[in-house]
């Protein structure tokens, strides 16, 4: 279980997080939504020590991980995979070698061993039959799947997805959404997804929390977002240009 307790964070004079608390249960798919610059990525980066809070605590499976040294964060970062928005594959390598690369680096395995391990990871995302092909042969969705397979190489307990469907076409986005759901169901990984793709929220999320002006305005299952009469949430969910929200 991941707990964020009353996190405050400012960059210079800009107060980004003003007392944010959140619990993510094991195996859950948690979506953090909000407008650009609302501090969604900043919040999740606290977990792995890429950002340190000004005040507040982060607790991981009952152990406080708020202000550790860089070395103390290493085991945590190993347990946590991050899929960055721009996780790109090397065009000159096959899909298999793309995934085998971090395996070889981390476990000091022979090429053959790393490849068979990589094949297993590709199988997790249903891409093992394309292992010998090149990234250029596939669309955005498929490439993203391979990038996710690569992120899974260290057998993480939780995965952070930073805007996994931004800038890709709807079908590809759907492929990625399904994969996130599938990984959670099959491997039991805990996923935190930073996103503002509304389509994904209703299809994939177990729980959704919306950040606005440094605080959560709503936290609950996706259905709550359709029912709520909170004007700010309503405006966001419907993508209306006019309303109380300041962006």
């Amino acid at each position: 279980m991941i707990e964020f307790i009353d996190i405050h964070k400012a960059f210079g004079s800009k107060q980004v997080l003003r007392g944010v608390s959140l619990e993510v249960k094991k195996g859950e798919i948690m979506f953090i939504i909000g407008s650009s610059g609302a501090g969604k990525s900043v919040l999740v980066k606290h977990l792995v020590g890429l950002v340190r809070p000004d005040a507040g605590r982060v607790i991981l499976d009952g152990v406080e991980v708020t202000n550790l040294t860089e070395e103390e964060y290493y085991p945590i970062r190993k347990r946590c995979a991050m899929v960055f928005q721009n996780s790109t594959l090397f065009d000159s390598m096959t899909l298999l070698d793309n995934v085998a690369l971090p395996i070889r680096k981390h476990f000091k395995l022979s090429l053959a061993e790393a490849r068979s391990e990589a094949k297993a990871k590709l199988a997790l995302v249903n891409m093992d039959q394309h292992a010998e092909r090149y990234p250029a042969d596939f669309g955005d969705g498929m490439r993203k799947k391979v990038a996710i397979a690569r992120a899974l190489t260290l057998n993480p307990d939780f995965v952070i997805f930073d805007e996994p469907t931004t800038g890709i076409d709807p079908i590809s986005a759907n492929i990625v959404d399904r994969l996130i759901r599938d990984l959670s169901d099959r491997l039991g990984v805990t996923s935190i997804v930073v996103s503002h793709d509304l389509r994904s929220i209703f299809g994939v999320a177990d729980r959704v929390a919306m950040l606005y002006k440094g605080q959560f305005v709503l936290d609950g299952p996706p259905s709550l977002y359709r029912e709520t009469d909170n004007a700010i949430v309503q405006q966001f969910i419907n993508g209306r240009p006019q309303g109380p929200m300041e962006v």
Binding site: S36, T166, H196, F236, G239, V247
Partner: peptide, 17 residues
Amino acid sequence: DDPTAGLDPVTSGKIFA
């Protein structure tokens, strides 16, 4: 060319408006 790429729904709405 992709006027709303990477923008949240409200900001996208403003651009489309």
